[in-house]
Design a protein around this nucleic acid. Structure first.
Length: 218
DNA sequence: GCAAAGATTTGCT
DNA sequence: GCAAATCTTTGCC
């Protein structure tokens, strides 16, 4: 069990940081830790530093899954902040979102890239089990589908409270002595279907220089 | 009830 | 650089 020097467990991310504007929440999420408890005895805890997120804000956002109103798939986006929303894309990749803003306003942050910090063996094992070729450590979670694979995330995690220290999948604050990372904003990726202005709004936030950023599609 | 496209990744041409 | 893999959700008949 990971502990600080004084014996206290690491603090989960403050839900208030996710309850305000989604772009502020996105900045707060950069640098925070994604934590996955062991699934089985003998398995290792997986942790990583979030370095890239994308915001999907409101029902007006034509790129958001919330654009058609509440459905069986997206309903947690209309709920309280700090909850996980996991969806399957292209029939094969599970993508993790963190719900933001107070209910009933639908908004979420897609976790696009994470720098692996611990439990890299488990991440590599998950990759091997999926039949994928090995990659450099920094690239194990360098994309939204790769985050899901590296951390063993599935749709069964939808609805989990990521701000609860008891959750097997959760968010923790960065160490206090760690500098707040720089944040760069760019347009979102893979949403050409949404049209303007949604394809151009700079709602993708990333930590420049990280070796774990997602690959830029052509 | 069926067809189409998707908040992606990978491997081959 | 481009197309395949793979299946859920949505849109329209």
């Amino acid at each position: 069990v990971s502990r600080l020097d004084d014996g206290r467990p690491p603090p989960v991310l403050d839900r208030k940081l996710l309850a305000g504007g989604s772009l502020d929440a996105a900045r707060a999420l950069l640098g925070a830790r994604l934590v996955r408890d062991p699934e089985r005895p003998g398995d290792t805890r997986r942790t990583g530093r979030i370095v890239e997120v994308e915001a999907y804000i409101g029902q007006d956002d034509r790129a958001s899954h919330a654009r058609m109103g509440p459905t069986a798939r997206n309903r947690v986006m209309f709920g309280p902040p700090g909850i996980a929303y996991v969806y399957l894309v292209y029939g094969m990749h599970h993508c993790l979102n963190v719900v933001t803003e107070p209910a009933p306003r639908p908004a979420a942050l897609l976790v696009r890239a994470v720098e692996p910090l611990a439990g890299l063996e488990a991440m590599r094992a998950a990759r091997a089990a999926a039949g994928r070729a090995p990659v450099a450590d920094a690239r194990l979670a360098a994309g939204p589908g790769l985050v899901g694979a590296a951390f063993g995330i599935g749709r069964e995690h939808t609805g989990i409270d990521l701000c609860d220290a008891a959750s097997p999948l959760r968010l923790e604050a960065a160490p206090e002595d760690e500098p707040v990372p720089e944040a760069v904003a760019t347009p979102r990726v893979g949403i050409a279907y949404a049209g303007e202005p949604w394809t151009s709004v700079p709602w993708r936030l990333l930590v420049p220089g990280s070796p774990s950023l997602s690959r830029q599609p052509r």
